[in-house]
Amino acid sequence: MKPPVQIEGLSKRYGGLTAVQDLDLTVRAGEVYGFLGPNGAGKTTTLRMLLGLIRPTSGQVRVFGARPGEPGHLRSVGALIEGPAFYPYLSGRDNLRLLARYAGTGAHRVPVVLDLVDLTDRAGDRYAAYSLGMKQRLGVAAALLKDPRLLILDEPTNGLDPAGMADMRALIRRLGAGGCTVLLSSHLLGEVQQICDRVGVISKGRLVAESSVAELRGTAALRVVAEPVDRAASVARALFGDDRVRVVDGALELAVPPERASAVNAALVDAGVAVSELRLRERDLEDVFLELTSGGLTHVA
């Protein structure tokens, strides 16, 4: 079966500005893939190229094997790109009915998707009167009209309140569990961490990392607050080697399995070091993200 998304050597340049550079990315069937990057990294440009809204300068994109412009390229694809956009003089329901006509799905899907995003009660109101969160939910409803096999969502929780964000994540998880492949772009790490199977991190138009969230976060570290810290560090280095010991904010961070905690404590106490704190510290995705997107790393496979 052809992968839902296959991107090879994709680049987009606007004059001297490179928005996306030599990007390779594959989204596998059934996974929820997080496309992570700071604002302006090239996420939306990539998604627009995937949907045929922007032509690549070079490289190829395929959706279920079809290139943009080929018949049926978007037959099984639903998308919400860079915020919702609808006709302000129509109601939410009429907007969806109209789009269902473009999609050729028939109007029977309209009440279904309105219910999915919990907008049935306000579906008769004019779109212009919707709150930002309602507009966003209508955007997701429109993306679901075709009952898509691939759902592309660009920052889907933008404008939603905390409850709305939680609902949206639950909906995406439900869709993913139901077999729908989801490509989700976000700059919200918690969001990606909670719902994505794999993530690709993009920075300055380049993919700088691609792996599962767990792999990206790496192994957990032991954080040790001890006095004197220099002596503690030298004891730890003697035990585990230089590359596993870091001094961060006056404390030790040891890249060792958590079950070594008691051994670490004993060794430090034996060496006359006063240990005041010893705990497992899971590496935050935010740390990884900032490290990857700050230009420190050029490529992580």
């Binding site: 609808f86 473009y102 955007g139």
Partner: peptide
């Protein structure tokens, strides 16, 4: 021009019709 002003080109084109059909 309304499609540009409201940003609705992307909304309708991602439903499937080609640009020339639209």
């Amino acid at each position: 021009g309304g499609e540009y002003g409201w940003g609705t080109w992307k909304t309708l084109l991602t439903q499937g019709p080609t640009r020339l059909a639209a």
